[in-house]
């Protein structure tokens, strides 16, 4: 569904990604792992058109979305929950959710009801400003806002950031469930390799902007060297 080919991204003189290729497919969770500064966020930002790559190509299905505007990529069904969640604090919960619905033709009212059913916490407080939400609730809201437009692709940038282990684990289960239920293509960027790999089908490991490993998530999870050097997972 999403295919990235030989992608290179620079910020001025800084090289953030070089020659990165990978693929993510419907009904599967693809984990993108790596340390701080590995280029994970940059990869998602490039897919969404927030940064202009220097070279390479990005395909959604068979269509190149390389030079498209961010809002048009979103309208093609790519939902991106950015690092830090991107909840707009000055708006109410319901307003944040309504915003998510503009990317598609879905009926707003039905969409809202569906998300409130999925995340009852949000429904109970729909008129409240988001500044009153906890970190976990904000993540729920960001997920709901991304899902309301019925996307085909879901890009998640470190959803577990700042969440308790218990909550993280529930969140991961939910992601997997949603992925199966809606035949979603999920790209899951995580530093928390352990919880990400638990639910992922495929995985890509980035290090200083290059792909050091990619393939089956289980294989990667069990590769001793990868675990040790790049994923910070020690026995």
């Amino acid at each position: 569904m999403i295919r990235v080919e030989h992608l290179t991204v620079n910020y001025g003189a800084i090289n953030a990604l070089s020659d990165v290729s990978f693929e993510a497919n419907p009904g599967r969770v693809t984990a993108v792992l790596g340390a701080n500064g590995a280029g994970k966020s940059t990869l998602l930002r490039a897919i969404s058109g927030l940064v202009a790559p220097k070279s390479g190509d990005i395909f959604l299905g068979e269509r190149s979305i390389l030079s498209m505007a961010t809002e048009n990529i979103a309208r093609l069904g790519v939902a991106h929950v950015p690092e830090g969640r991107g909840v707009i604090h000055e708006l109410t919960i319901e307003e944040n959710l309504r915003l998510g619905a503009f990317a598609s033709e879905v009926d707003v009212r039905a969409g809202l009801e569906r998300q409130y059913e999925l995340f009852p916490v949000l429904g109970d407080r729909r008129k409240k400003y988001c500044s009153t939400l906890s970190g976990g609730e904000r993540q729920m809201l960001a997920m709901a806002r991304a899902l309301i437009s019925d996307p085909k692709v879901l890009l998640l940038d470190e959803p577990s950031l700042g969440l308790a282990p218990q909550v993280t684990s529930e969140l991961m289960n939910l992601i997997l469930e949603l992925c199966h239920a809606n035949d979603l293509t999920v790209v899951l960027v995580e530093q928390n390799a352990k919880s990400a790999l638990r639910i992922s089908h495929d995985a890509v490991v980035l290090h200083l902007g290059t792909v050091v490993a990619s393939g089956d998530a289980d294989t990667i999870a069990n590769d001793k060297n990868l675990r040790h050097y790049y994923l910070g997972l020690v026995q």
């Binding site: 969404s48 927030l50 505007a69 961010t70 809002e71 979103a74 309208r75 939902a79 991106h80 950015p82 991107g86 707009i88 000055e90 708006l91 307003e95 309504r98 915003l99 998510g100 503009f102 990317a103 598609s104 806002r145 437009s149």
Partner: peptide, 17 residues
């Protein structure tokens, strides 16, 4: 709503279409 979102958080608003 879109006007307000664009002013408050243009990048997020773009990501939402």
């Amino acid at each position: 709503l879109q006007l307000r979102a664009s002013a408050l958080a243009p990048e997020v608003a773009r990501l939402l279409g």
